[in-house]
């Protein structure tokens, strides 16, 4: 183990990690947005859209991100859709995550009792008000553990971005391995991902505990 080598390459890994973080952040936020919209469409059985969303959810949940990226990045350019690496990564992650988040949020929505909705309607709330003040707060509280698991899953999935030539952590590590420093770069890799994922994991543990204390939906 060459400590000097590791120290010399910390900035390189830092830069790669910041790329991973920004791609993951953008992808996960978009996933949540797509997931929320899809879950609401499914929950309220919006005609036509409901079927399209159902198909999308199945497609995104039953195919690997890596193949989605290969298709987006290398396949679609052939039919005239050019996506830049960064865009492609975010679109791919959001496509995958959207399906997972939709299922997580939908299970939360389904946990909200019919009586809640009927009570809301009977006191004269409009549909948007009903969603905003009655359904979503309760549904989100139930969905937090699933959303947490999905978030961590998506962060881990970002590790494949090097296949579309993005200089992320795996990309840098692979480069250093070519120079014959596989042990050092693997150590850096493990430490980098620990630094990335452990705080997120801890944050969700605390959040889940707080949500449970609120006793919503129970």
């Amino acid at each position: 183990m060459d400590i000097d080598y590791i120290v010399a390459h910390i900035p390189m890994f830092g830069k790669a990690a910041s790329l991973t973080i920004s791609l993951a952040l953008a992808g996960i936020l978009l996933s949540l947005l797509i997931g929320l919209v899809c879950a609401l469409v499914r929950y309220f059985h919006v005609p036509v859209l409901h079927r399209i969303v159902g198909g999308y959810i199945e497609l995104s949940r039953n195919t690997p991100l890596m193949i989605q990226l290969f298709f987006l990045y290398y396949g679609l350019t052939r039919v005239g859709i050019m996506l830049e690496g960064v865009t492609c990564a975010i679109v791919g992650l959001a496509f995958l995550g959207g399906g997972y988040m939709a299922e997580a949020i939908r299970s939360g929505l389904e946990a909200v009792g019919r009586a809640q909705i009927e009570s809301g309607l009977s006191i004269g709330l409009s549909r948007p008000q009903l969603i905003r003040y009655v359904v979503l707060p309760q549904a989100m509280a139930v969905a937090v553990p699933a959303i947490a698991a999905n978030t961590i899953f998506l962060i881990k999935e970002t590790s494949v971005f090097s296949i579309i030539a993005l200089p992320d952590l795996m990309y840098v590590a692979k480069d250093l391995m070519k120079e014959g420093h596989s042990n050092e770069s693997n150590l850096m890799l493990v430490v980098s991902y620990l630094i990335l994922i452990l705080p997120v994991s801890l944050f969700f543990t605390v959040l889940e505990r707080r949500m449970r204390r609120a006793g919503l939906g129970s």
Binding site: I152, K156, S159, M170, N183, L189, L194, L198
Partner: peptide
Amino acid sequence: IRVMPILVLLFLFYYSLSKI
């Protein structure tokens, strides 16, 4: 196992641990 991306584990086992 939960925290590490599977890809990192693959790298670790393929390029380092088998050598160590």
